[in-house]
Computed example of a mutant assay.
Amino acid sequence: MAKRRKVGNLLALAVLTVVVRQPTHPYEMASILRARGKDQDMAIKWGSLYTVVQNLEKHGLLEAVGSVRQGGRPERTVYQITEAGREELRDWTRELLSTPEREHSRFEAGLSVMAGLPPDEVTALLRERLESLERRLAGQREALERERGEVPRLFLVESEYALAAGEAEAAWTRSLLDELASGAFPGLEQWRDFHETGHVPPDVAAIAERGTDTH
């Protein structure tokens, strides 16, 4: 089970990975994280960056070591990581790599309620999703191949994982579409009949009444 962190926002983890290299002010932190494409790897809300930095300082994971001024811009506080911050970075990384967490996706939520739409519409929507997925995956493959000769693999593994996860989703979606299109999906005719007549099959009604937990 994941630990309760003093600053649990994943942006805090990203900040620590920047500051562990050298003292940095928040504006530069944001520039480095954007250049690394960290908003592609984790959910980042840029508007909360200063609050996250302040919370890291409050809990002793960062400390202010000075300030800089560039041109007519406001003075900016420079932060460095503390020993407690280094340990938090190491411990958090260990947890993320070793401990699987249940992560709910919007697609999973949609699948859980797809019976509310007619099967032919669901089929069309899944085809639309698969086409979008395949376009995105093609772009990811091209980007990864382009980067392989320029970037050490150590810094590409998250892109490899994202591509593999996307390919797995596409393969599963394609398989579901094949079942729907061929008529092999169990209960397809009852599902279609429900949307045409409003009649709920007794076995489905029984499940709905008592509820079910398949997770």
Score class of each variant (00 low, 15 high):
185 F>R: 07
189 E>R: 14
183 G>E: 02
156 L>E: 09
2 A>E: 12
155 F>T: 01
103 E>V: 15
127 R>Q: 10
206 A>L: 06
132 S>V: 08
91 D>T: 15
95 E>A: 09
78 V>I: 14
77 T>W: 02
191 W>L: 09
49 L>H: 07
64 A>Y: 03
34 R>H: 13
70 Q>I: 04
158 E>K: 13
207 I>Q: 10
39 D>T: 13
209 E>N: 08
114 M>A: 13
119 P>M: 01
72 G>S: 09
88 E>I: 00
43 A>V: 15
143 A>C: 00
75 E>G: 07
53 V>A: 08
99 T>L: 11
120 D>V: 08
135 R>N: 06
182 S>W: 00
22 Q>M: 04
130 L>C: 06
121 E>S: 09
3 K>H: 14
12 A>I: 08
81 I>T: 06
131 E>S: 14
3 K>Y: 10
46 W>K: 12
92 W>L: 05
137 L>Q: 08
155 F>C: 09
196 E>H: 05
167 E>A: 08
124 A>D: 13
119 P>C: 01
37 G>D: 10
110 G>V: 12
113 V>M: 11
147 E>M: 07
213 D>H: 05
166 G>N: 04
77 T>Q: 11
82 T>H: 02
194 F>I: 03
213 D>G: 01
104 H>T: 15
72 G>I: 03
57 E>M: 05
154 L>W: 12
21 R>M: 03
156 L>A: 10
110 G>L: 14
13 L>F: 15
144 L>R: 02
135 R>P: 00
192 R>L: 09
171 A>Q: 13
159 S>T: 03
169 E>H: 11
35 A>E: 15
102 R>D: 05
39 D>M: 13
158 E>Y: 09
179 E>D: 04
63 E>K: 10
209 E>V: 12
41 D>G: 13
93 T>N: 07
20 V>L: 00
142 E>I: 07
141 R>L: 10
125 L>P: 08
74 P>M: 01
153 R>N: 08
172 W>P: 00
40 Q>K: 14
10 L>I: 12
50 Y>A: 03
181 A>E: 14
113 V>Q: 12
123 T>D: 03
203 D>R: 00
110 G>Q: 11
67 S>H: 12
60 G>T: 06
114 M>G: 07
155 F>W: 12
32 I>W: 11
26 P>I: 09
75 E>H: 00
87 E>G: 07
121 E>G: 06
